[in-house]
Design a protein around this nucleic acid. Structure first.
Lengths: 353, 353
DNA sequence: CTGTTAGCGCTTTCAC
DNA sequence: GTGAAAGCGCTAACAG
């Protein structure tokens, strides 16, 4: 605002433009553009010269302008809900980092958007896409009946979900075979002599929670143990719900020697509460988690868990979304990855009850 | 490529354009644009009509086009290095989420970029800005002598750091007064009768590590305890370094009854290792962390720590970067926030040695 | 109050 | 092999 100094004011940094480069080399903008983009109809010599002066001018093409012209954005949106505080679970944040890294490998950026009001969630997806800020989305924490999926599908917006839903048949997703994993976990526990195995479930609106519970039941059956509905306690993936869950187990379910938790955070909460109640883990109570977050290894006792790779998941999703945005035919667009039991010291042989 | 079907192919979603809206209302693009942006020189009646048809057409302005015209991006870049796996520490990810939420409140997006090769780090900052993808940056994990800061400062690129540096005088930053915090922590421990208090330090290339160590020394002095350099063990903010640290303490430093760790992850690692070595926390050894991550509360035993608010930090940084990008004068551009001791159960009275 | 004319910086036909 | 012209969708002068 202060007159003469206006064009020098802080924050306004001059970026070299195509026209300037063209001018400097003595060629037309068109030619420079094609040279820089390595078109075959430009002579090697010219390309060299152009690249050189472009470099010396510190020229970097404005992606805004390019995007406007080409119609694409080279950015993928990831919307997190502030309600689920932090970058949600440790796993979510490990995954997010992996996704960012993987997208980077494909030359895409990750636009991280936080939405505070759940009501405006859909609106956020809509705006981000309509505004042309992103070419597509990655969805985390998919819900059983996921409104976002319906919305995006209807509009033909490319997206990949991390986790299945009731509508899984129709969209691209990648997921961990949590049902199998939980079944394995129960068998593993049964193999250690546990007969009364409780489960602290995850947020029931999240589809994967239902799968984890189904796996738990399935494992019980395989192990020849009758499913006792009273041994399934509600939870919400938080450590706090693990604490509450343990108290309930103690209060209401006699003879439980092992607890399978919906995720690692819940398991850690459960252990910490158990210890406070004077229950020793694993000698009196085995506790097992799911996800294999890094912290699980450092917990005391180190957590037995079902591990899967956030990095692989991120990379696969990145490839998938790149394909979708590029309009590729959908092959391999539904991927199920296994989880592996990592035995550490929060589980042991069943105690004599 | 397949001819006639080309314009219908998946992924190409038609977005309404300004011209279309203008056409529909029977007004000029300009008028529509101004109506939508609530310019004073458009009649209320017209604005109403325009908004109505815009709404019914589902029109959302293309931010690409607007950005190209206005020159700004409404996005802030956050570059994380994949080397420090995951979204780095739990604190980093809590902060990132908070930052995204806060930026959202200002109508800004967060562009999360991951860089694998440390060598290309500066280049990434440069490209992101030159390409016009972001208006500015937020830097985490500031290093003592931070090349990124020199680079951005030289070019006049707006940025705010979370954490100070050797060059702090010259740039906008927000930081926790970790020196004071660590000093307080030592006094707190001394107040519980601890005389030989070890420290497991953080990554020494990170500026804040030096501050935390300085605070530790300062606290010792205040408590009238001589600083013993042999009681300071190296670390890197990881839980693993906490484990290693504890072993070294046991092996080489007799009489230590308390360990102050550079952050919560280190503290958790330390506790878990101590327990494995048969050392009881806190009866035989007190361990204290820093950051106050959510998991600290759920640890067993719950961790005594120095807590500070990621949310507040994120909000403040958001305001600061908004101001900087907007070209505001720099007032309050260097903010020091306090940390608070949260006493939980990983610390107790000094054991008799 | 509203419309006309430019132009942000780039990529693309289409000529030469 | 290279250049001229047009336009992506928007906003900012400047007229009327």
């Amino acid at each position: 605002m202060s007159g003469k100094a206006a064009d020098t004011h802080r924050g306004k940094v001059k970026r070299a433009t195509l026209a300037e480069v063209a001018n400097a080399v003595g060629l037309a903008k068109t030619t420079v553009s094609r040279a820089l983009n390595d078109y075959p109809d430009i002579s090697e010599e010219t390309k060299r010269r152009v690249r050189e002066t472009a470099g010396s001018l510190g020229y970097v093409a404005s992606s805004r302008a390019r995007q406007l012209q080409k119609g694409s954005t080279d950015a993928i949106g990831l919307v997190i809900s502030a309600a689920a505080v932090g970058l949600q679970s440790a796993y979510q944040s490990e995954f997010t980092a992996a996704l960012a890294a993987a997208l980077d490998g494909h030359g895409l950026d990750l636009l991280l958007h936080s939405v505070t009001d759940p009501v405006s969630e859909i609106d956020t997806y809509n705006r981000l896409f309509q505004q042309g800020k992103v070419d597509g989305f990655v969805l985390m924490r998919t819900r059983c009946d996921d409104e976002r999926i319906r919305f995006l599908t209807e509009r033909g917006v490319p997206f990949v979900t991390q986790g299945r839903t009731d509508q899984s048949a129709d969209h691209a997703w990648i997921d961990i075979d949590s049902q199998q994993a939980f079944s394995d976990a129960v068998e593993f526990l049964a193999g250690k002599g546990h007969r009364r195995i409780a489960m602290i479930a995850g947020d029931e609106t999240i589809y994967s929670s239902t799968l984890r519970e189904a796996g738990y039941r399935q494992g019980l059956e395989k192990a020849g143990i009758a499913v006792d509905p009273d041994l399934i306690f509600p939870g919400d993936f938080s450590a706090a719900s693990g604490r509450v869950g343990v108290k309930r187990v103690i209060d209401s379910a006699a003879g439980v020697t092992a607890i399978l938790c919906a995720n690692d955070a819940t398991a850690m909460g459960a252990i910490s509460q158990a210890v406070e109640l004077g229950i020793e883990v694993p000698s009196q109570l085995s506790v097992m988690g799911y996800d294999g977050v890094r912290m699980a290894e450092m917990f005391s006792p180190p957590l037995t868990t079902l591990s899967h790779s956030a990095a692989e998941c991120g990379e696969r999703i990145a490839s998938m979304i790149v394909g979708l945005v590029g309009g590729d035919a959908l092959t391999d667009h539904q991927v199920l990855l296994p989880a592996q039991i990592i035995e550490r010291r929060s589980t042991g042989m069943a105690a004599n009850v």
